[in-house]
Amino acid sequence: MMFDARERSGAALALGAVCLIGGSVAAAGRLHDFPLIGGQAVRYGFATVFLLVWGRIRRHTFIRPSPAQMAWIFLLAATGMAGYGIVLVYATSMTSPGNVGVALGAAPLIIVLVQSLLARARPSRNLIGGALCVACGSAVAQMSTGSTVQWSVQGFMWSCLALTGVCAVTLFGAPATKALGSLTATTYACALASVMLFLTAVIKGSVTGTPVLRRPSGTEFSALAFLALGVTTVVYLLWYGAVERLGAGRTGLFNGLVPLASLLALSVTGTATASLNQIGGAVLVLIGVAFGLRVRKRGAPPPGRPRQSR
Results as ranks from 00 to 15, higher is better:
53 V>F: 11
53 V>D: 08
55 G>Q: 07
55 G>H: 03
55 G>Y: 03
56 R>C: 09
56 R>P: 04
57 I>T: 06
57 I>Y: 12
58 R>T: 12
58 R>C: 12
59 R>E: 12
60 H>G: 03
61 T>C: 09
63 I>L: 13
64 R>N: 07
65 P>W: 10
65 P>N: 10
66 S>D: 11
76 L>A: 10
77 A>N: 00
77 A>Q: 01
78 A>Y: 08
81 M>K: 06
81 M>C: 06
82 A>T: 03
83 G>H: 07
84 Y>N: 12
85 G>C: 07
85 G>A: 14
85 G>E: 14
85 G>F: 05
86 I>T: 06
88 L>T: 09
88 L>P: 04
91 A>K: 05
91 A>N: 04
94 M>P: 10
94 M>S: 15
95 T>G: 00
98 G>C: 02
98 G>N: 02
98 G>H: 00
99 N>V: 12
99 N>S: 07
99 N>K: 07
102 V>M: 04
102 V>A: 02
107 A>M: 06
110 I>P: 07
110 I>E: 08
111 I>E: 10
112 V>P: 05
113 L>Q: 10
114 V>W: 06
114 V>C: 06
115 Q>L: 15
116 S>R: 15
116 S>P: 01
118 L>N: 11
118 L>V: 11
119 A>F: 11
119 A>I: 13
120 R>M: 05
120 R>E: 05
122 R>T: 14
122 R>P: 07
124 S>G: 12
126 N>W: 13
127 L>W: 01
128 I>K: 09
128 I>L: 14
128 I>C: 09
129 G>P: 08
130 G>I: 02
130 G>F: 00
130 G>S: 03
131 A>L: 15
131 A>E: 09
133 C>D: 08
133 C>K: 05
133 C>T: 14
134 V>N: 06
136 C>E: 04
136 C>H: 03
136 C>V: 14
137 G>A: 03
141 A>Y: 10
141 A>Q: 11
143 M>H: 11
143 M>K: 05
144 S>I: 03
144 S>E: 11
145 T>P: 02
145 T>E: 15
146 G>E: 12
147 S>G: 10
147 S>V: 09
150 Q>T: 13
150 Q>G: 13
152 S>E: 00
156 F>Q: 12
156 F>A: 14
157 M>L: 15
160 C>S: 14
160 C>A: 15
161 L>R: 08
162 A>G: 11
163 L>R: 07
163 L>S: 02
164 T>H: 08
166 V>R: 01
167 C>W: 03
167 C>V: 13
168 A>K: 12
169 V>M: 14
169 V>W: 02
170 T>D: 09
172 F>T: 02
176 A>N: 04
177 T>C: 01
179 A>R: 14
179 A>C: 10
179 A>L: 09
180 L>S: 02
180 L>W: 02
181 G>E: 09
181 G>K: 05
182 S>E: 13
185 A>T: 11
187 T>E: 00
188 Y>C: 01
190 C>L: 04
191 A>D: 00
192 L>V: 06
